[in-house]
Amino acid sequence: MRTVASAFILSLVAVVLIGMVSEMPRFGGSANPALATTYPRYTGSAISDTGAQNIVTAIVLDYRGFDTLGETTVLFTAILAATLALTATKGKTSDSGK
């Protein structure tokens, strides 16, 4: 009974998922929103939006500046943990960071 019920539910989910995938635009098609809307939006107005000629830096430091702040924080936390773990001396706690 359990097997039948789970098979029924799983086939329902499969029907929904297959239906959704068949409705999606063709992978890599030139009319997809990622290529037809997002790409011209950023390549066309990066200089007028940010003043930077390098679009990669314009996205990393301006459009996604908050993400880069998180990236820098990750770096900070990582080096903090590495320094704490590597320079800890057994039995000495006061001068281990010096």
């Binding site: 200089i47 003043g51 930077a52 430091l61 301006d62 320094t83």
Partner: peptide
Amino acid sequence: PGSVLSAGFMVPLGVAICLKVASTIGSL
């Protein structure tokens, strides 16, 4: 656009990240 001192805060931000990463490598 095209000169070194352009693009608003990107140059100071880049220099800050540069010093940060350099000191991270050095500390490691």
